[in-house]
Nucleic acid binder design. Structure first.
Lengths: 128, 128
DNA sequence: CGGGATCCTTCAGGATACTG
DNA sequence: CAGTATCCTGAAGGATCCCG
């Protein structure tokens, strides 16, 4: 008898895709790069709040994963440009879909956050 | 002059959607529930490796967010059933799309993981 | 300008044991 | 069967300083 197909086994694709969603910045870096090759500084400015450390760290990761290509120009001042590889482009597809949904459904996000806020208030009111 | 639209500001929808992606189990719980109402034990079995603690914790969160409805049946042994609310159903849409992509692109996931493995090996070879 | 190295804090999340 | 309460650890990620 076949197992129900809603079971999410340890190494199923649905779990594995979370790799790029886990890091706080990974998917956003990919998304930004989908607009075209970009220099480090541009990326930094495109992601307000990111620290230098996290930026380079995530860039190394996606580079190691073969999702992003890093090109160094030996000039002064130094110039480095990042761009999506073909593999990276494939991964951006579902991310863009997700982000497009988010943009189109900001109201749903509001509702979710309102609910959470209310339940948090209710919980703290108990403690008094 | 308008700013480039690849900038991901602190409270843009693209960042806010990460709320449901951040938790290790949140999106998977929602995905499983998209197959229909389910009891705690069923959910537990649908997500091999999840601990009781994380299961209930995640369920409380999505319940507080208004994404999931919790129904208690006062019988012995106790029976509790979880189901998606209309809001929850909206959030499952993009998740399902993401998961469908993952299932259809397992090869890309393999490639990504191979790349990461190789670069990790190369790095450790340096250290010897 | 781009990036490596360190230190430090936080907290998600797992293990375990107990209750009704 | 469903849920709560502790305890504890790893690892993510931020701040900071230094280098070519």
């Amino acid at each position: 008898m076949a197992e129900p197909d809603f079971i999410l086994r340890e190494n199923c694709p649905q779990r594995r895709i979370h790799y790029i969603l886990n890091g706080k910045w990974t998917s956003m870096v990919l998304s930004v790069l989908s607009y075209g090759p970009m220099r480090t500084g541009q990326l930094e400015r495109a992601l307000p709040g990111i620290s230098k450390k996290m930026l380079t760290q995530t860039l190394r990761e996606v580079e190691n994963g073969g999702l992003v290509h890093r090109e160094v120009f030996h000039v002064v001042p130094p110039k480095v440009e990042y761009s999506l590889t073909p593999l990276g482009i494939r991964f951006v597809e579902p991310l863009s879909a997700l982000y497009d949904w988010a943009k189109d459904n900001a109201a749903a996000l509001d509702e979710l956050e309102d609910n959470l806020r209310r339940s948090a208030e209710a919980a703290s009111k108990q403690g008094e």
